[in-house]
């Protein structure tokens, strides 16, 4: 075997090993991401359950537990960002991503319900936004709407934004959609129970909020 052939074969071997190592490293990191998400979700699930149990035990809403709920919402937002990134990396069809999204949506619905219960019991008026999007390619302005909502959430931390994949096959989500009568004209928003559809600009989105709602949410924080 000539030196050139021998070196070419070694180089081919190195190339295959490097390409394989990269593929393995990517797979390893993605699995670690999924595990990380699962851990966060499990912790959030326990926290939510704890809050619900606390709520039930005291029968009357412990109004000081509103603070706990706010913390949970912040953590939910961080989990949502991570889940969205994982979805970009692994694809929206990935079974683990879908499972995690289902769990995440359930957590969001539970947090939404607790928020409503706390508001009723303690007389607060939180501004909640339920945002329905689609990754199926049938929502051209969902990215813009998502970014605008991120801006609003960042600017007004008391604003409670819950994002849902409209097409997610989850019973509780479908029930929520039915109860709120949300049509499949996406993006869809339910701001304090009132539906609206489509996204044109941030200023138009802000008009969908109750008068003074954004200012008051800032003031409370």
């Amino acid at each position: 075997m000539s030196l050139v052939t021998r070196n070419a074969l070694i180089a081919l071997g190195i190339t295959i090993v490097l390409a394989g190592t990269i593929a393995y490293a990517i797979n390893y990191l993605n699995r670690a991401r999924i595990n990380d998400l699962s851990t966060i979700e499990n912790q959030l699930s326990i926290d939510t359950l704890s809050l619900e149990t606390q709520f039930s035990l005291l029968e009357e809403a412990p109004c000081d537990s509103a603070a706990s709920s706010t913390t949970l919402t912040g953590e939910l937002a961080d989990l949502g960002s991570r889940l969205s990134y994982a979805e970009d990396q692994l694809g929206s069809g990935n079974s683990q991503v879908v499972r995690l999204k289902e769990q995440y949506s359930l957590l969001e619905i539970r947090d939404y319900l607790i928020t409503k219960q706390l508001a009723a019991a303690c007389g607060t008026k939180p501004v909640t936004v339920l945002y329905f999007y689609s990754n199926a390619g049938d929502c051209s302005s969902c990215d813009k709407a998502g970014y605008a909502l991120s801006y609003l959430r960042n600017t007004y931390p008391a604003l409670r934004v819950y994002s849902f994949d409209y097409n997610l096959d989850l019973g509780a989500l479908k029930t929520l959609i039915t109860l709120l009568r949300v049509r499949d004209s996406l993006p869809a928003f339910v701001v304090n129970g009132k539906q609206s559809y489509g996204f044109t600009s941030l200023s138009d989105l802000e008009k969908k909020f109750p008068k003074g709602a954004l200012a008051s949410t800032t003031a409370t924080n």
């Binding site: 070419a8 070694i10 180089a11 081919l12 190195i14 490097l18 390409a19």
Partner: peptide
């Protein structure tokens, strides 16, 4: 990119070869 890595590997291996 595979070809680029292959070529660079070839050069590095050749640098270590006897000639």
């Amino acid at each position: 990119l595979f070809i680029a890595i292959f070529f660079e590997s070839f050069v590095l291996v050749t640098l270590l070869s006897k000639p």
